[in-house]
Amino acid sequence: MKLSEVISIVDGALITANADLDMDISSACGADLMSDVLTHARSGAVLLTGLTNPQVVRTAEMAEIVAIVFVRGKRPPLETILLAEEKGIPLVTTKSTMFKACGCLFQAGMNSCDV
């Protein structure tokens, strides 16, 4: 699934510059616990989370998460946005809850990060 489709399915807005909207996203995981992301996420996945600190981007970098969606209308602080732009990881924000955003993606056929 393309990044542009993910954004439209979760009814989100892109908040970083220079994102590749055609970027391919292979699976998704929803978590607020970064260690869980590090343990379970697949390379090439999108992360849905309610956390907005810069460590979310670091976690994405290490786990090769390619995009991050912030749920419940959260907007990350500037440090998070700057780090994400530096690492080339697009950030998206959506008003949907975690449950709804994940549900919509799953319904649209997005793969889960199950091991």
Binding site: L33, S35, T49, T59
Partner: peptide, 15 residues
């Protein structure tokens, strides 16, 4: 609050 400290870090390292 930062998303860590859930007690799985060391296991993750071991994995």
């Amino acid at each position: 609050e930062m998303g860590f400290g859930a007690g799985v870090g060391l296991n993750n390292i071991q994995k």
